[in-house]
Amino acid sequence: MKYTEEHEWIREEDGLYVVGITEHASEQLGDVVFVELPEEGSEVVKDEDICVIESVKAASDILAPLDGEIVEVNSAIVDDPGKINEDPLGDAWFFKLKVTDLSPMDDYMDEAAYKKFIG
């Protein structure tokens, strides 16, 4: 599992890369009330805003952490955004990417580095 400075996690699963937000991010956001996910099949570019997440406090963007194609999105979090607060690292994943350029993975943090990053 790797972590970005934008508080997203990336996990490899059967050749695809699953993306979600960290527990720290979900705590900072507060209760999530709305999520908008990208369309399945869309091509995304690293650092592009591709999701919107709104909590009781504010709206935030989720960036594509890598270049690739969105092959699956988790519509369960659209129907029940509260899942993002309950299980951000598990059930509440956002989307699965078929990645075309893996090189940025080397720059992302491992768990120890991320823990240090959030202090």
């Binding site: 507060g30 209760d31 009330v33 009781v56 406090k57 509260g82 607060n85």
Partner: peptide
């Protein structure tokens, strides 16, 4: 602004 219960609850 909120306590540990959180805004929704």
């Amino acid at each position: 602004v909120q306590y540990p219960l959180g805004v929704l609850k």
